[in-house]
Each structure stands twice: as structure tokens, then as C-alpha cells.
Amino acid sequence: MKVSVVTRSGRELVKGGLELNGSATVADLQEAIHKRTKRYYPSRQRLTLPLPPGSKERPTVLNYKKSLNDYADGKELTVVFKDLGTQVKYSTLFFWEYLGPLVLYPIFYYSPIYKFFGYKEERVIHPAQTYALYCWCFHYFKRIMETFFVHRFSHATSPLSNVFRNCAYYWTFGAWIAYYVNHPLYTPVGDLQMKIGFALSLLCQISNFYCHILLRNLRSSEGGGYQIPRGFLFNIVTCANYTTEIYQWLGFNIATQTLAGYVFMVVAAAIMTNWALAKHRRLKKLFDGKDGRPKYPRRWVILPPFL
């Protein structure tokens, strides 16, 4: 089969096109493009079918597992190439995101950093600040461990630019919250409120871990594709993993009571709500109850009892 590879501006990327045999898959095509262009390894490539000029529709993205015959009607095929930029593994992205808060937070707790902000006198450390340190570090340590040993990623790689964007987000928020919780003029909440807060945080972190285990098993039971999440809190909420994450931060904030912490929680909840709405919509569309497909059950999206 003759395959022409063009860029989005219509330039021919591989001069003279590529000749592949009839049983070749999209992955084979990507390998062939890599061989000829040298710099564009498969995960950097996004291949789509060309759209008629002026069309506003989204182009069909070629699935690397499928055969080229699924996309071509005859002996020729034209694909549109887009360079996605330098790619990194998802686990690399997550590791660097979470390492920042894990390292920065203890610096505020242990080091005499507040002397540089003009607070000369000795700091008296409240119990709430010590528990907060354990709670925070456990949270990010857990996330890193889950990244390497629990999560199965639906996409193998992410653009390198996301590493900088996400690290800026996590590291700045982490340092900002740590600054207030460990501040020499920090005002702790009452004993009961602190205990309730940390208990909620711990409970949610354990539940969150269990949610991640369930999601992992969902992916492993069948080779890829979407499935209806079931079991534990997933029987009530589509994205129980986000629910427990949000309530975890609520617990941390009840116990430590900083405005910065609440701001972070609201921003994080907004981002996760976006993802959750998309996932919920996708699952409902996929499992519509027609032609023998199961019907997606009625569930909360992310934040019972609100959404």
C-alpha cells in the first residue's frame, strides 16, 4: 500500500511517500515514518485522516493498534501528520509534579527559613503543624508510590511542556500552603476540630488508595477500553477517586485552617470536576443500553451530594 504523509500545511513530510505491505498496522506506519524522519518517534506522532477543505469537523485520529486497511478504501492512503513535541512518560511527569511538594513542605517545617522573612525569635511548633507535616508528606509519598506501582495510564506519554506547567502548579501551591501552615505566627484550631480534620483526611486517603486499586483492576481485567467502574464508592460516584481526593484536602484544611489551603482545594476541585464531567459523559454515551450494551447506572459525577 502506498501511504503519503503530509503536514497540516500540506507539505509532504516523507518525500515520495511510503510503501507498506497490505497487512501493515498504524504502528508499522509510525515506525516507518520514524525511520525516515529520524526525529519523530511514534509517541510524538499524531496521525489523522485528511478532512475536506473548509470542514469544521474533528479529524479521525488513527489508532496505532488498527490495520491500515481499516482506514484506506483502496491501495492508497493519505495521512496528516502533527508533531506533538518532545514526549515524556506519564510516570515521569507525575514523579516530578509530586516530588516538589514532598521536598518543599519539610523545608518550611524544619529549616530556619522564616528568619529570612524577618521573624527572628524562636519558633514554637504546635502539634497541629507536626501532624500536618506527616499528613502532607504521607499524601505525596503515597501519590509517588501509586504512580509507579498502581496506576495504569491510558496514554503512555505526555508532552514535555506539561511537566513545566504542572510542576509550576504543584510546587507553587505546595510552597504557598507550607509557608502559612508552618508560619511562626500560625494560629492553630481547637483540639477537637484538628482531630476531626486529620481523621477525615486519613480516612479519605485510605479510601482513595482503595479506589486506585479498583481502577487498576478495571484496566487489567480486559485489554484497554472503557468499562463501568464498580465496587466500593464507585457504586455511588463515577469518579470516586476524585471525590476522596477533594474530601482529603477538606480534612487537611479543617485541621490546619489556612486560606491558601482552601484556595488550592477549590482550584483542584474545579480541575477535577472538568475531568469528571468528561468521563461521566463518555461513559454514559458508551454504555447507552442499546444493542446489548449495558446501560450506565444513575450515579453522582464527583461531589455528592452536589454534583
Binding site: 502559612y180 500560625y186 490546619t256 485552617q257
Partner: peptide
């Protein structure tokens, strides 16, 4: 300025 109940400055 700190100290305040919201632990904010």
C-alpha cells in the same frame, strides 16, 4: 498581617 484566624497574610 498574621496572626489571624484564616492564617493568611
Amino acid at each position: 498581617r498574621m496572626p489571624n484566624a484564616l492564617n493568611f497574610s
